[in-house]
């Protein structure tokens, strides 16, 4: 049955989309549909749910949205949801709620496509470990809220908090290099050696900044005016005339200063990232 459904949906995809990639659809759909069917086949309306899922997956493939970047990270939330999360998490949703959960997942994923690229990739990076599709809209809103909340400009008076993050905790061989600000609270960190490998970094006060995981390049490069002078020395930084100790930092490889009060540095000989926040 799954094979016939895959053929039917592939034919529909070709009728609908000029760039429909039937091979990619089958590559994702065969395993995903098998998994979903194995876990839901005994529930009422299981076939309707499976058909709906494959229909939505075909649409995502046709729109060119079911895609990963060369590092393997999903390019957007829609891809993460329909290629990975839905087949695994939908069986845990009550049978009567499954169609609604599918529709919501689609609408949220497609809605994010109309937003700047960084937001979609940020959401995909943070939603990757989600454990349930129950109330996924609320979960997504909670994930996005800190990134969308306005951040007042810092007065740089201190005190400052230092957080040292280790890229190794996310990817063993990641060497932090160039950084750019995708949004006031979101930084894209590029790997020095692998040109298409990036990590997302969420900036937060009180030493709460955190790595978001692998992501395609978050795209935007926000330019902010009126930034304070920052100088780096061995194991320290001087921000607007104040010295802030930075343990283990010998010479910075790349640095970034944001108007909201964040100073970041990577080092040539380390997988660490130094984040100083000064609210």
């Amino acid at each position: 049955m799954i094979d016939a459904l895959l053929d039917e949906m592939a034919a529909l995809g070709r009728e609908q989309h000029s760039r429909f990639d039937a091979a990619a659809f089958r590559a994702i759909g065969a395993d995903a549909a098998g998994l979903l069917w194995a876990e839901t086949r005994d529930a009422p309306g299981a076939e309707v749910v499976l058909r709906s899922y494959l229909r939505l997956l075909a649409e995502a493939v046709g729109m060119g949205c079911a895609a990963r970047d060369p590092s393997g990270a999903h390019a957007n939330l829609l891809s993460l949801l329909f290629a990975e999360l839905v087949p695994v998490l939908l069986p845990a949703v009550a049978p009567a709620r499954r169609p609604r959960a599918l529709a919501d997942a689609w609408n949220l994923g497609e809605g994010l496509l109309s937003e700047p690229a960084w937001m979609n990739r940020y959401a995909a990076a943070l939603c990757a470990p989600v454990a349930s599709l129950d109330d996924f809209p609320a979960h997504l809103a909670a994930v996005l809220a800190p990134a969308l909340a306005p951040r007042p400009a810092s007065g740089w008076l201190g005190p400052s908090t230092v957080r040292v993050l280790d890229a190794r905790s996310v990817r063993d061989d990641f060497l932090p290099g160039a950084m750019h600000l995708a949004a006031p609270s979101v930084v894209c960190v590029h790997d020095r050696r692998a040109p298409r490998s990036q990590l997302g970094l969420f900036l937060d006060y009180a030493g709460q900044s955190s790595l978001l995981g692998p992501t395609p390049c978050l795209g935007a490069n926000l330019r902010e005016g009126a930034l304070p002078p920052v100088a780096f020395a061995r194991n320290a930084a001087e921000i607007a005339g104040r010295a802030v100790p930075l343990p283990w930092l010998r010479a910075p490889q790349d640095t970034l200063v944001t108007a909201a009060g964040f100073v970041l540095a990577t080092s040539a000989d380390s997988q660490r990232l130094w984040v100083i926040d000064t609210p």
Partner: peptide, 26 residues
């Protein structure tokens, strides 16, 4: 309502809807 909640609420009004037979229509 936060900006994130506003956005999610707007996205949920997207083109996927649930038909009475339980199928999802686009």
């Amino acid at each position: 309502m936060s900006l994130a909640q506003e956005k999610c609420a707007r996205w949920l009004q997207g083109r996927a809807t649930v038909a009475p037979d339980g199928s999802v229509h686009l």
